[in-house]
Amino acid sequence: MLTNKEKELIEEIRRGNARAFTDLVERYKDLVFTLSLRLLGNREEAEEVSQDAFIKIYKSLATFKGDSKVSTWIYRIAYNTALDRIKKNKRAHDHVEIDQVRKMGLADMDDALDKMVQEEKRQLIDQCLAKLPTEDAGIITLFYFEEKNLLEMEKILNVSANTIKVKLFRARKKLAGIMETSLEREILESNG
């Protein structure tokens, strides 16, 4: 499961090489932070949770058996740490009424997005992802982080691939619905 490079890196960290752990953090910090941010919706909290996740990673490296990819193992720890924080705060955002595209259609939305400046587009996507319920945001983010590998996602979420497929479909519909509302608002605003 592990590549030789990953094995070497983990061995170095186990031997107490702080530099090797810094390399691991540098490699995954953006992914862990993005996942935490999409689940929590708050930068400060996401940074704290990412730090906690890396501390857990450091402490559990001694017991990591290597039966999954390092990235999968890291995402699982980050995902669970973020969920623990949400449970602690009792604050998951899960009320999205829109769950399907109504008027605009996917092709129209594609056109509208193509006409936007890259930065503007990224900002809009970011806002739409932030509006997704916690579970949907987590599933969609992990699906692309894991390069659409449902088997790796099973290991992170501890649910079957079929359940993940159903959840993914619902999350996609919700995201498209949120995107439609946001684009309509954008178009209305730009038309004055």
Partner: peptide, 27 residues
């Protein structure tokens, strides 16, 4: 079609970065 649309959106979704001294604070 929905899957392809979301694929395109997610390809443009920005990867966020934590603060500059994230690694230093963590260590």
């Amino acid at each position: 079609k929905l899957e392809e649309f979301v694929d395109r959106i997610m390809a443009d979704a920005p990867l966020e970065s934590p603060s500059v001294d994230f690694t230093k604070n963590l260590m």
